[in-house]
Design a protein around this nucleic acid. Sequence first.
DNA 1: CTCGATGCAAACTATTTGCAGGCAC
DNA 2: GTGCCTGCAAATAGTTTGCATCGAG
Lengths: 153, 153
Amino acid sequence: MGSELEILREYIARRNMRYTPERESIVREIFARHDHFSVEDLYLALRKKRRQISRASIYRTLPLLIDAGLVAQVFQDSGQTLYEHTYGHEHHCHLRCLRCGQVVEFSEPTLRGVEERLAREMGYLVDGHKLEVLGTCPACQGQVTNPAKTPKA
Amino acid sequence: MGSELEILREYIARRNMRYTPERESIVREIFARHDHFSVEDLYLALRKKRRQISRASIYRTLPLLIDAGLVAQVFQDSGQTLYEHTYGHEHHCHLRCLRCGQVVEFSEPTLRGVEERLAREMGYLVDGHKLEVLGTCPACQGQVTNPAKTPKA
DNA sequence: CTCGATGCAAACTATTTGCAGGCAC
DNA sequence: GTGCCTGCAAATAGTTTGCATCGAG
């Protein structure tokens, strides 16, 4: 706990950037929650805690955190990009219900082998993977069948 | 060849919708190309072939084609949603370079087993999966290291 | 003191939608 | 003829960006 801030500090120091209170608050908030969040979620949560940080700063900070390995982009839902913190968590995949949006996390260790195979065969330097399994959750089964909503672009 | 039109016809007939020349042209164009395309790509390609179809119609048609199993959403690149036709092709996964955007397709049959396991353990009705492996392609390795571009929302 | 970071508001861009006319059935 | 579709243009919504100011180093 708190070592995400050290990572941030180190990342920032190594590039002669500024360690600002805004950046620190953003990271604190991201690691205080344990869900998939959008920029808007972050913005509102910070504002509720009396840390008013502009959306622009959040948009500008997230790419840094991703590059620093603290955060990952998960997927899009209804037009919003969702993120999750990754530092300190084992990598996992997502099973998602196309009707209600429910997300279940699961792990699939064999994918490490797939990454290695691709690195070897294709000469890629592999950073990671994203596996999403899509379907209908138990609760949504047996309901009228409207075309499942396509995750908005 | 051409059976994608039959699928479309059947899908449309089954729901008392209209089989319009616009919808047919869109499907023809999608199956004439073999790449990942955006709505804009389609729009321009159709227009170049003197089939002027509005973007709105393309946006309205794609969800139907996805529901009909003819097309799938692949991923986002620079803010655009990319699609590919799927009918008549084996399912495959994507290996993508975060620096130049190159995409390599590969297959990973073991994922079928993962789907089955999840269906069994979580009670989901599984429609399919999307696996994306991210990294740096051989050509982009050994270049100055700017933070890899995050696929825009 | 200097230059990178912030906030604001305006700009962009992809996508959605209301509406009037057109056409598949 | 009826109601679904289409094109157009306007409306949305998420994200980006220019600029003046602020503040970390």
